[in-house]
Amino acid sequence: MDSVLFQGLIGLSMAMYLWLISAGLTIIFGVLRIVNFAHGSLYMVGAYLAFTFYGLLGWPFWLAIVLSLLGTGLLGFVMERGFLRRIYGIDEAYQLLLTFGFILILDDLVKIVWGGVFKIPQIPAFLDGAWSVFGRPFPVYNTFIIGIGVLVAVGLWALFEKTWWGRTVRATASDREMANAIGVNVPRVFSGVFVFGSMLAALGGALGTPVRVVAPGIGATMIIQAFIITVIGGLGNLKGAFVSSLIVGILSAYGTLFFPVFELFFIFVIMAVVLLVRPQGLFAR
């Protein structure tokens, strides 16, 4: 029984990683109606920046995270202002293709700057070690991730429900012409949301650095998982992304426990089942 509960806790921390990477993707889609293929690459850049400041330069962990968010946010700004903005009017397939081009560029760029080898820095001392949960050691760092995930969820809820900026963004998401008519600067909201989403991706990447490998290909792995989460949850639906992260994280934790062979496969099965039952995702808009 305890081992079952313990595995649930493992699943919960997996779920929070999934949540962090899919939240930004789904927010960007919800407002801009763009699926950012390069979201995983932003995650990767965030991870590499955090690794550089924290692992290479030895700066404090929190400072490394903040700098990583700022750096990735700037990259997001350039992507939106310099490129995406110019093709909003045309078929969305081209927006997918453009962000796909970014993946190729960023993957190689990262190799050029940091080299092609895997990197894992130390876990910061104050987050290292493990508690005893159900008589087994559970890493403090995973607990920290669960905490951050919940904090981000609450923070996003408050941002979109309680603040003026959040309401502006939601108005733009539901009807951009109307928002424009009542004086919202829609292009600025788009840039802001894209940068914000990029920073969320970077947060996932930066927090992952001490426990997950940092390597050139991770962006691609991440984006697949984030896609599946958003498809299951319903495109553009933040609550859906949170719930489906929990479902996928926890179910895959049990899946790997009972059917280790299907570790990579499990998440696809969940997606196929959800699509058969509810083609628009669990929480369609």
Binding site: F29, V35, E92, A93, L96, I224, F227, I228, T230, V231, L235, V261, F262, E263, L264, F265, F268, M271, A272, L275, L276, P279
Partner: peptide
Amino acid sequence: LCVRHTRIYFSMLTLAFGMMIFSIALK
């Protein structure tokens, strides 16, 4: 499964199922 959707959804689904085949080949 895929043609029940179009546009972005379709692209994401085909990507995911393509990667499913990759996982099978790997595992």
